[in-house]
Write a protein that binds this DNA or RNA. Structure first.
Lengths: 263, 263
DNA sequence: CGAAATTTTGATCACGTTCAACTTCAGTGG
DNA sequence: CCACTGAAGTTGAACGTGATCAAAATTTCG
């Protein structure tokens, strides 16, 4: 029904055009795990983008309570979605990594339900939500891709609820490290052995619902038990097997969009 | 681009056809808050449904770790999305109310990341994910609607993270009651004064990351402080103002899908 | 009605918070 | 080059909240 260019004949799950783009665009890398994108698709996608914005560390990207109607895709850098409470406590809901979306769920609601702050220098691709909607009208696969991304987001949040609600601090931290590693790995920002932690302990404690001292001790315990090794912000999984077992970690993999026959 | 029947001429945000359907279908009631649906739209939507399934209380709808590729829409009754951990603890991620979706996010991943169980008798409208995708190819507005629903889901999860992570048990329970009330109200299952609680205290404690005794005491405290009144499973908000202040509750309202000119 | 599930109450204790001090390190300007 | 500053990480001691376990009271349901 849509104008799928017949140029690509490959089977599902193994797209497609533009290995080029995939290499420098983490979002494309993510999308290609569940939807085939032709070069034409990518072109019309990039055409909806307004600009590639550089963002300074510590800049607020979204403000809790305000209307927000852009869609931002992180090309590089890190951010945190959080909420500040009356009592001064902060809960980090999620860390945003390359390939993640900034306007979700804020742009879909009358006002953003939380804030987003850059925790490193970033580069962002931005478009108006209405422009993306228009694109979806022409090519429904993008609307479906959006749903798929949103579902992944929800699945990640669900794990965070489980982390904070019922996992012990040790399991919680183990699960967190594995999750971040898995997500970074999915966009080519980590290797099998480990990754560079882009967060401070204060941020992690605010994400995991712990106090900073306790997070610190818990991290020390993971080290003491020989599960991880940390130096210079780099985390190595000394015993990935045991760590995954401790955390009961199940990686999140999207299923390909089940297009009927063609595609 | 899609066949929007010109039959309806009303302005945005105030749809449209089929007040009939809206009255008995909570999903339609929800959708109409952010997308205009013609009678033709509804017809093609209902046409993708396989069946209207009655479900018995305590039935498992989705099993953690198994592939699941249906989309279920709750017409009536209640369910809980949860995860069972090795240590026997259970975390309820979300309660599913009339108008909620069952296959989110399970059907979008290679395997469901959590289980869903019916906590009352239910009636469910079910379709294959692939059938819904096909519908979206013909009418992109449904794909967008799916994204909007997913974004709402994510926003609700985000609040749960904040609840469990950084709100005191009292604030947490207050927030929970207000959230459920607001969601029930949105599909015509509650009045301004209060609502019928369809959950046991054990379920609520598993949702809020508390022990049953502590949840019970916290509930008693809300009563003692004159914020709510409970009898026969019915919750009345004696002092809704104070309750919302205590919980820092901000209701979640979707913004209309920003279609360009027409529609 | 009887059995099972749910709600309520009580006593004890462990875990994680809080608060405080100290260390380490990177960046900056004198 | 070193002193200064502020941010981040580390360690310790005391306290309090909420878990745990147990049992009774109450309600629901087969």
């Amino acid at each position: 029904m849509t104008d799928l260019s017949p140029r690509i004949a490959e089977k599902h799950g193994r797209p497609c055009a533009a290995g080029q783009a995939a290499r420098d665009d983490p979002l494309v890398a993510r999308l290609q795990s569940f939807v085939a994108l032709t070069r034409a698709d990518l072109d019309s996608f990039y055409a909806t983008m307004e600009a590639e914005q550089p963002i300074k560390k510590r800049r607020d990207l979204v403000l809790d309570g305000y209307e927000f109607c852009k869609l931002g895709f992180i090309k590089d850098g890190f951010a945190a979605r959080y909420k500040l409470l009356r009592n001064g406590k902060r809960q980090i809901i999620n860390f945003l990594l390359p390939g993640d979306m900034v306007g979700m769920p804020g742009s879909f609601l009358d006002r953003a339900p939380n804030s987003v702050i850059a925790i490193s220098d970033m580069t962002l691709q931005v478009c108006a939500l209405s422009a993306f909607v228009a694109l979806c009208g022409r090519q429904p696969k993008f609307a479906l891709a959006l749903s798929w991304l949103a579902a992944q987001e929800a699945a990640i949040y669900a794990e965070h609820i489980i982390d904070i609600g019922r996992r012990s601090p040790l399991e919680r931290l183990a699960h967190f490290l594995l999750e971040i590693h898995s997500r970074l790995n999915g966009v080519g920002r980590a290797d099998d052995a480990g990754f560079d932690l882009p967060f401070t302990q204060e941020m992690m404690s605010d994400a995991l619902g712990l106090s900073v001292p306790h997070l610190n001790r818990t991290l020390a315990r993971l080290r003491a038990e020989g599960l991880i090794a940390v130096n210079e912000r780099r985390v190595e999984f000394s015993d990935a097997k045991a760590l995954a077992l401790l955390a009961q970690f199940q990686p999140i993999h999207p299923t390909p969009i089940p297009f009927a026959a063609d595609d």
